[in-house]
Design a protein around this nucleic acid. Sequence first.
DNA 1: ACAAAAGTGTTCCAAGTACACCCATGT
DNA 2: ACATGGGTGTACTTGGAACACTTTTGT
Lengths: 286, 286
Amino acid sequence: MVEEEDYLELYSDSEYEKPSVSVDTVMFRLKEVASNNYRKLPKKKMQVFLSQRKFPPFENKYGIIGTFIDLKYDIETSMKLCVKNKTNAENYYYEQLYTFGEKQRDPRTRVLSISYMLLFNQNEKLENGKWFNIDIKESEQRLEERENGYVFTKDVFLQLSNDGEILNNHLQVQIIKNNVNTLKKINIIHSDLAFDHCIIIYHAWDRLKNKLEYTDIIFSLLDNKFTLTELKNSYEEILGEKLLDANFRRKTSRLVLPLNEFTKEAGHRPSQLFRANYNFKNKNID
Amino acid sequence: MVEEEDYLELYSDSEYEKPSVSVDTVMFRLKEVASNNYRKLPKKKMQVFLSQRKFPPFENKYGIIGTFIDLKYDIETSMKLCVKNKTNAENYYYEQLYTFGEKQRDPRTRVLSISYMLLFNQNEKLENGKWFNIDIKESEQRLEERENGYVFTKDVFLQLSNDGEILNNHLQVQIIKNNVNTLKKINIIHSDLAFDHCIIIYHAWDRLKNKLEYTDIIFSLLDNKFTLTELKNSYEEILGEKLLDANFRRKTSRLVLPLNEFTKEAGHRPSQLFRANYNFKNKNID
DNA sequence: ACAAAAGTGTTCCAAGTACACCCATGT
DNA sequence: ACATGGGTGTACTTGGAACACTTTTGT
């Protein structure tokens, strides 16, 4: 065994079979859905961009945008080229999420997927796919005791919908803790999507939700100018809970800079416009 | 271009050149360094496990433990086998960190590195390498304005030492923000380590430091039984700052469970022993 | 007039900060 | 006796939670 490893160190490029490697991108946006009441503001709706597969495996199923990488380029460059080629988009926030590499995740052959989360402004036009509304419901955590630790289990229902098309996905998330390690396992109970894409989307949603709290990532989903109510509605849509207005304004005041502009013709009192304060220091970016 | 992609979808396994893929593991522990004063408690010291390379590239340089993956196994299994084979260790916390894939990171050929952070109890015996003390100093962030955004720059000095051996590493970390994206770039100014391993170690250290705040990850570095001062010293060593005792005890009370056991023969008042409360719910694990 | 959103003020409570102080032990 | 760590109490400050209330607009 030791011999094998030394050999590898010397001749790494030739001996073992290599995996195929893909980059896969979870694209999110916050879409404004107009109201039929002239007084009411549009509602913000979380959406993910999906594309219907034209070939097996998972022919005709929807999946996220991705491609096999080309060794001519850096990984990030491969990702950007893929996005440009397939959707024609160039302006977005991105960050690497996680690398999935389970043996059975692709029925054809061994494929590693380096996943990215991308955030778009709602006005960006993307080609070759559709935006699907995202509705995620998480059950309460159930606690189970084991010999030397605990297992926390929850169910996640991820529904994606668009003009009558409805894609249902049911995941089970387990956190397994013992006295040395903590593991997170995600099982697909049911999925209408291709491959393990529902897991990747869930992972991205989870990351986004967490990053809302300690970064200014929200601005990647908004226009350059926005009202505080718009900002609040955006947080509420992603977090899935209502926030109190007065408190929200105080908390976010350090994140934004007021402009000398106001909305008008809105059927209610005009609202001051703000822009992001890019001078705000994020606590950390991974 | 579209043709090429369709082709890929169908025959993904054969057409493009594939990269070599390695797993690399940043192993941390908190080592107690005994004091010569009978009253004083041992000091906790952060350490990383490094191994000296026997072959080019970077012959004789120190690096973290890693191997090329074997397609017979899942990625995690490959990682565990590598650790078992090279260091003979089996009990540790682990989590995936990030996948590095820059074109020039390996001088031989294109290599992607899927990196993991591993946390060990100080009593675990590891073979084929040495533990190095870690000292990290970060400069203040410098702010620079650009056309449509800001750049934050800081210097990171990562010193690793062991019995007179001293390895110095100097990184420059830049956070580049404009009105759509936020990017983190890390450049190596100088490194005594192999490859880009100093970046991977810095990344792991950063993750660990952040996770201290919202998880109970610290217990993976401690014995099953510990005193609150030991716990406090562990936090202080990783965070690099002193904490106030009374406040610390209140804050961590929900993380631990008291035992009916006390230390003795310590040259000072006996101290109650505690164990981790595994029932504590981490806010999130990535 | 009124519905909807914009915006401010106040009270209460929880949690973090800083610090003072006493206790118990082995040499 | 004393150095060291173990452990508690308290006053102050900060920030979040809940809620009441006023303002401004278009139809």
